[in-house]
Measured scan of single mutants.
Amino acid sequence: KFNKELSVAGREIVTLPNLNDPQKKAFIFSLWDDPSQSANLLAEAKKLNDAQAPK
């Protein structure tokens, strides 16, 4: 279960257009550290992506 959630969340995070590479890497490392938090980490990444969207 975690492997699928981890890969789905990881793929989504790397495609978020408004995150820079260090931010993406930080989220990916957090996913590896605790795969059970993949849904929460993906939600946080999406929030940050939205907040950094060009206005």
Rank of each mutant, 00 (worst) to 15 (best):
L6N: 04
A43L: 09
S7G: 08
D50G: 07
N49W: 01
D50H: 07
A9T: 11
N20Q: 06
P22D: 15
P22W: 14
A9E: 09
L6W: 07
F2K: 09
L31A: 03
K1V: 11
D50C: 07
G10I: 15
L19Y: 00
K55W: 03
P35D: 05
A26V: 05
P17H: 06
N40P: 04
A43T: 09
L31Q: 03
E5A: 11
S38H: 13
V8Q: 12
S38P: 02
K1F: 12
P54N: 09
K25S: 10
R11Y: 13
P17R: 07
L41A: 03
K47E: 08
F29W: 11
N3P: 12
Q37D: 07
L6I: 10
A45R: 00
V14E: 14
L6S: 05
S38W: 15
N49T: 01
L31E: 07
D21G: 13
K46W: 03
T15K: 14
T15F: 11
Q23P: 01
E5C: 14
K55V: 12
Q23H: 00
L19T: 01
S30M: 14
V14R: 08
A51N: 06
A53Y: 05
L48T: 04
N49M: 02
A39K: 10
K55G: 10
F29S: 14
L19D: 01
N3K: 05
K55E: 10
A53W: 05
F2Q: 11
N18T: 01
Q52A: 04
I13C: 04
P35N: 02
W32S: 05
A45N: 01
S7A: 12
L19G: 00
Q52K: 04
N18Q: 03
F27Y: 07
E12M: 13
L6K: 03
K25G: 08
S38L: 14
R11E: 10
N18I: 01
Q37E: 10
K25H: 10
K1M: 14
K1W: 15
Q37F: 03
V8I: 13
S30F: 11
P17M: 05
S38M: 15
D34F: 03
N18F: 14
Q37W: 04
Q52G: 04
G10L: 15
N49R: 01
A9P: 02
K46C: 06
P17E: 07
W32Q: 07
Q23I: 05
D21W: 15
A53T: 08
A9Q: 05
V8D: 14
S30K: 13
K4W: 11
K25I: 11
F2T: 10
K25E: 14
K46N: 09
E44H: 04
G10F: 15
I13P: 01
S7C: 15
A26M: 11
A45L: 02
V14D: 10
L19S: 02
A26F: 13
A39G: 08
D33L: 14
E44L: 08
P54K: 08
A45D: 02
L48H: 02
F29K: 15
F27I: 03
G10S: 14
A51C: 12
E5G: 09
A39I: 09
A51F: 09
F2L: 12
A51L: 12
K1R: 14
F29G: 14
N20F: 06
L31G: 02
A39Q: 09
P54Q: 10
G10Q: 14
W32C: 15
N3V: 11
R11C: 15
W32I: 09
L16T: 01
N20T: 14
A53H: 06
L42I: 09
N20V: 04
L19K: 00
A53M: 08
N49E: 02
S38D: 05
Q23A: 02
N20R: 08
V8T: 10
N49Y: 01
L6C: 15
D21L: 09
L41V: 12
D34Q: 06
N18E: 02
I13G: 00
N20A: 09
Q52H: 04
K4M: 10
A43M: 08
